[in-house]
Design a protein around this nucleic acid. Structure first.
Lengths: 233, 233
DNA sequence: CGAGGAATTGAACTAGCTCAATACTTGTGG
DNA sequence: CCACAAGTATTGAGCTAGTTCAATTCCTCG
């Protein structure tokens, strides 16, 4: 078992309930990655799940012409690798965006451990089930909506005490790639949100001046007329 | 246990391995829905998983202004409800697109049943894990790519012996909504694909004339230049 | 058989993209 | 510790894929 340290990350980790199992310390150890260091590559054989103790990890694929296609960003307390369970190979590559420490959890041991513990098995199912509806912004109509939703999601997931300020861990290029927008569009939208006094932007530092406005953009703006046949439901 | 009938659907059902458990017949029964009949509504309490024996089910949400937002289509042999496991409520509504028969599987019983059977528990995990990377086309750049990928995915998932012909179970409007394209765009792309002798279209009936061309559009066309920093991976 | 939904096609419009130029930031080696 | 190179960000101008609006035809099903 990992003893709670001065680093509080374990407390809010998705896997904290697994850590409290007494005999679990044998199947886990830490690894630290430097900025831009590869955690695993797409098609690598899947042996471990990774819990992020500290840092940020970007998951991506490379298409047939060598273009990067970012699939997700993951933060402290989140787990990587669920999508590799079914065929024992990682579908994505994963790279650290800053100095990042992970908890390496051998899946075989892990699965054996929780097999005899229905409550934990259920917890795992819940965590994976949750991922099925987790944030994709590609269904939002406008660039502004996507970016607003993205910022709000970041704020929520960074698990920081300060919910009105954040430091972007990724580049504009990465954001654009992830949201399927040109880098220039991301930059322009940021400028616009700043001009409209909704955000205060200083390079990677973002302060949310009007939280409600941001939510309005993310939510209400998604209400452009779409084919609606069952509005009565 | 459901005895194999003249209807072959159980054989290729994702849950067939669960059906072979001897005492399982007590926890399952069939329901048939007419066209446009609701299977369940978003926010309904989650009690059952649904295996589609026959037919097609559309899952969708209604946004704050009453617009429909289609999340997925499911076909014979596929399971609905995984995304409701974590909070015991369906995040989407589900509606039959044609006469549809489902196998209603009480989740509580089901979970109890497989708890003592590690192999089945693992199978369930694999099925859900698989869903994490299952087809969204919104990451594709052009309308043509999305539609081509969509058609190819349909062909694969309809589990028909004939892989060059299909009958669309949904309207152009539904396709457009799902792919985030205007209905008119869907129509225009279909026309173009027909003009280019890649598809033969007769209303809902589609014949694939040049399978390789369609795959080229879906795959290769996704290779528009994107921000690529790690092309070497 | 008639009506309302579904599909097609055209014309004009626009959000976001591409191309291009410039400025700023960061990390590295002398 | 500074300078320089490479990466990162911003902004403008013009372009284009896809949308919106509109008109017409074609189905389907009660």
């Amino acid at each position: 078992m990992v003893k709670p340290s001065s680093d509080l990350s374990c407390i809010s980790c998705d896997f904290s309930s697994f850590c409290s199992i007494e005999d679990h310390d044998t199947v886990k150890h830490f690894r630290t990655f430097k900025r831009n260091e590869i955690v695993y590559r797409a098609n690598d054989k899947f042996f471990n799940l990774y819990a992020i103790k500290k840092g940020v990890i970007k998951s991506f694929q490379i298409d047939t012409e060598g273009n990067e296609l970012i699939r997700k960003f993951n933060f402290r307390g989140e787990i990587l690798g669920y999508e590799a369970i079914h065929n024992r190979h990682f579908p994505f590559s994963a790279i650290a965006l800053c100095e990042t420490t992970v908890c390496e959890i051998p899946y075989e041991n892990f699965f054996n451990m929780i097999q005899t513990r229905p409550a934990l098995m259920e917890h795992l199912l819940h965590l994976i089930s949750e991922q099925l509806t987790a944030g994709s912004y590609l269904d939002m109509n406008t660039a502004e909506q996507r970016l607003a939703s993205f910022i709000l999601d970041l704020i929520a997931r960074l698990r920081s005490t300060n919910t009105s300020e954040l430091v972007l861990p990724m580049t504009r290029q990465d954001i654009g790639n992830y949201l399927r927008l040109a880098t220039e569009t991301v930059s322009r939208i940021f400028s616009r949100l700043q001009k409209n006094k909704i955000l205060k932007i200083d390079h990677k530092n973002i302060r949310i001046l009007k939280h409600h406005k941001l939510m309005e953009i993310a939510d209400v703006a998604s209400n452009k007329t779409r084919n609606n046949t069952h509005a009565d439901l």
